[in-house]
Nucleic acid binder design. Structure first.
Length: 810
DNA sequence: CGTGTGCAAGTTTTT
DNA sequence: CTTGCACACG
């Protein structure tokens, strides 16, 4: 059986038939007589897992190969091995929102108020730690690092709180399993033997924890087949380590490497654009992409006058293509960098009566009413669940207020019991008012009644919840439009449960249902045959393809994103993101930029994405006429480029001709910025961790010990995240300035205000040197946005009241 | 205690 | 523009 054994690395370019290759390999394994239950195929999304499963069903009908997402695989393992990691089998999976709620409560109780680290930021930190295999017991802060010393308190506190609620967050699913495999060698060995053939999709997006899991399951039987494309690694921000794939051959010296470089998806023009772009990445293994597909349309790049015209023109173009019968709505996809950009396109598509869908899967499960209703189910499944209790105890309102709940929390904490237990003996908590105590007792009674139904089909349980709590009645009685919307969402949830029951022949448990609903992803919405235009982020498009793809808002700040410009590595990831977007297209690729963008309620001038200048000019049908299609000659392309290179983004407002002239003059002044001071030195990238360092043969089962040793070293190294804070005392300071601003009436005259111009270097007594990157308003309302050299980042000031002074030119 | 109002703040990407 | 949050009122 030599042919199928051993590690295999499939480097697969976009559209190269990767899924096909993997499924054929699995089919081949089965043909060779390997039992399906020994094969495990891991993906990142349910969509990919389902796709693989269904193709496999065609190739090898009736096979019992487990195709699953990483997270679901881990969730299942944890059901079985929960006690080994300190959980019970009925644990709850908290989504980002749940875990942040819990985190906020922890912060409050730990007495950490308005620390300058936002809960969001702390949550990110914890997530990073977990993705890097750092457990809370073992974390050591670097002395003198304020964030880390804070985390040394919060991380354990948060984690203990999760345990108390018998819950875990997304990252825990992975981390617990990794810990399990590390701490229980006999279980590791059992699972290693059980899953003798492991296939991992999108390996370039695995993080250290996933890496650890995969390796731990492939020690004795290193029949590990990973597929991926380093050029499509776009999840570095959530801990994915591109080195996992780049150094796979070092991890497994006997690796066979297969390269899939022929593209079956796109036209040559699209592929040339993609290659040309990605070649600008420095940290990259060269790869030759080619296709035998016939030449077709050039890539089209259109520069629109503003974002409204952009959306409208594209919708119109779609409408025409659909009307002429050339295309159907489902042939199109619109891709953007941030979700917030979807609004404009939704409006345009609605206006043109083109059906569309938004690929933002979790959205449904994030709705208040859905989370409210689900929280009952969660509490029924896991009575210790703190979040669920707090959410449903007073929904719909029963007269149980925050004060009572605070007392309940305190009581629960002092007894080390769950909230529900505490509620059972609420009469012993003297601080809670009689009336509230009554209400709480009533809730407990309701809960107990509902828990009688727990063995029924999920739809029935949900039905009981909805009626017993009078949730439905409440919504039906209301005639507010909002409540009607909620009602229909709740009904939608009912039909989801019905479908779930049917899928599982009535044998699906509540636990399974909750697990499934916790692990939905954006792409899961994508059930084939709906004839609609698809709207989604670049990230969500990975692995998908469409005949016509529109990549929109290709502007600096969006792509590359403003927050991803600090480090060259981040820029490269942004470039890969663009690469992913481009290579989704089969036949036509429409790129667009708007010169003025309406965003967050403001209009602002834009600068075209620097990536656009990395595309092959000769491949592009370029149109800068503001929407009407015109073939442009190269010279105007060049002059545009020069123009853009010097224009700073600026908030847009109608201006008087005099104003305009003044601004124009200053615009072309060479900013004194460059000579004035060194640029903000980029934080050195941390020394490369040796996560995937030298290798010793894998066949010894004892390699386990060294594996973990190595991984935790790497974790320690890479865990020391850089990024010294950005917003230290900033918000407080900002508020103070604002307060002062209110008291003051106009003191400085507008003349003084007019001395400021975009691009000008200025000094602030507190933040130091900075550059004006945008101006708005006039006279006393004139505001400047300044980007500081220091860690202060960007700040806005009302010039008339700010201590900003222009730096003197020498 | 619940609701309403107002203001402030913050906004990348997601399993 | 949205969402979240604080406060004040009924």
């Amino acid at each position: 059986m030599q042919v199928v054994d051993g590690p295999l690395l499939i480097l697969a370019g976009p559209g190269s038939g990767k899924t096909r290759t993997v499924t054929h390999r699995i089919a081949y394994l089965l043909e060779q007589g390997i039992p399906g239950r020994q094969i495990l195929a891991l993906t990142f999304t349910n969509h990919a897992a389902d796709e693989m499963a269904s193709r496999l069903e065609t190739l090898s009908p009736g096979a019992t190969v487990w195709t699953s997402t990483f997270h679901k695989f881990c969730a299942r393992l944890l059901r079985k091995y929960a006690p080994q990691v300190g959980l019970e089998a009925n644990y709850t999976i908290y989504d980002a929102d749940d875990s942040q709620r819990m985190l906020k409560r922890v912060l409050q109780e730990e007495g950490i108020r308005n620390s300058h680290f936002t809960p969001q930021r702390i949550a990110n930190w914890i997530s990073r730690a977990k993705n890097n295999l750092i457990r809370y017991e073992q974390f050591q802060p670097r002395p003198g690092d304020p964030l880390e010393s804070l985390m040394a308190e919060i991380y354990p506190a948060y984690q203990r709180r999760l345990y108390l609620a018998n819950a875990c967050d997304f990252d825990d699913l992975l981390l617990h399993v990794a810990n399990l495999l590390r701490d229980a060698p006999e279980i590791r060995q059992e699972l290693d033997r059980r899953y003798r053939y492991i296939l991992v999709d999108e390996y370039q997006d695995t993080n250290l924890t996933q890496y650890g899991i995969v390796r731990a399951l492939s020690l004795e039987f290193p029949n590990l087949c990973v597929t991926g494309d380093p050029d499509q690694s776009i999840y570095g921000w959530r801990g994915a380590n591109i080195k996992n794939i780049l150094e796979f051959e070092k991890d497994y010296p006997s690796t066979k490497v297969v390269r899939l470089e022929e593209n079956y998806r796109s036209t040559p023009a699209i592929l040339r654009a993609a290659s040309c772009l990605i070649e600008h990445n420095q940290q990259r293994k060269a790869k030759a992409l080619f296709t035998k597909n016939p030449e077709a349309d050039p890539v089209r790049l259109t520069v629109y006058a503003d974002s409204h015209i952009e959306a409208d023109s594209i919708a119109l173009r779609m409408e025409e293509a659909i009307a002429s019968g050339k295309r159907r709505p489902k042939d199109f996809a619109i891709l953007y960098r941030t979700n917030a950009l979807s609004v404009g396109w939704e409006a345009a598509l609605r206006a043109h009566r083109i059906p569309y869908r938004l690929l933002q899967g979790i959205e449904f499960y994030q709705r208040k009413e859905i989370k409210d209703v689900l929280s009952y189910l969660q509490l029924l499944n896991n009575p210790q669940d703190e979040n669920a209790f707090l959410r449903c105890v007073n929904t719909p309102s029963r007269g149980i207020g925050q004060r009572s709940l605070d007392h309940l929390l305190t009581a629960a904490k002092s007894h080390g019991s769950s909230l529900l237990e505490a509620a059972r003996s609420v009469e012993n908590i003297s601080k809670i008012a009689k009336r509230s105590a009554k209400a709480i007792q009533k809730f407990v009674k309701l809960y107990d009644e509902l828990s009688q139904t727990i063995a029924e089909p999920v739809e029935a349980i949900l039905g009981h919840v909805l009626t017993e709590t009078e949730f439905l009645q409440h919504l039906r009685d209301s005639d507010s439009e909002e409540d009607q919307e909620r009602l229909s969402n709740v009904e939608e949830l009912l039909s989801v449960t019905r479908a779930f029951d049917e899928d599982h022949g009535g044998a699906g448990t509540l636990e399974d249902f909750l697990e499934q609903s916790s692990l939905v992803a954006a792409q899961d919405d994508l059930d084939g045959e709906e004839d609609r235009v698809t709207l989604m982020t670049f990230h969500a498009s990975k692995g998908l393809e469409f005949p016509v793809v529109c990549l929109v808002a290709l502007e600096e700040g969006f792509l590359p994103h403003e927050n991803s410009k600090q480090h060259p590595d981040q820029i490269e990831e942004e470039r890969r993101l663009f690469f992913v977007g481009i290579t989704r297209a089969k036949e036509e690729l429409w790129l667009s930029q708007a010169r003025i963008r309406l965003y967050r309620g403001r209009r602002a001038m834009t600068v075209p994405s620097s990536f656009l200048f990395e595309l092959p000019r000769e491949e592009l049908a370029l149109d800068t006429s503001g929407g009407r299609l015109v073939e442009l000659d190269e010279s105007s392309w060049e002059s545009d480029r020069d123009e853009y290179a010097q224009v700073e983004p600026e908030e847009w407002k109608p201006r008087s001709p005099a104003d305009l002239k003044k601004l124009e003059e200053k615009l072309w002044n060479k900013p004194s910025w460059q000579e004035e001071e060194e640029e903000d030195p980029l934080p050195e990238s941390p020394p490369e961790s040796e996560a995937t360092a030298e290798e010793k043969p894998d066949d010894a089962a004892d390699a386990s010990a060294s594996l973990w040793a190595k991984l935790s070293t790497a974790a320690d190294l890479s865990g020391g995240d850089d990024e010294p804070n950005a917003s230290t005392s900033a918000s407080r300071e900002d508020r103070r300035t604002r307060a002062r601003r209110k008291q003051e009436t106009s003191r400085k005259v507008s003349q003084e205000v007019e001395q400021f111009a975009t691009g000008m270097a200025v000094r602030h007594p507190h933040y130091g040197l900075g550059k004006i990157i945008a101006l708005s308003g006039t006279g006393i309302n004139r505001k400047a946005t300044v980007r500081f050299v220091s860690q202060a980042g960007e700040k806005s000031f009302v010039l008339a009241h700010s201590p900003l002074v222009p730096t003197k030119k020498k």
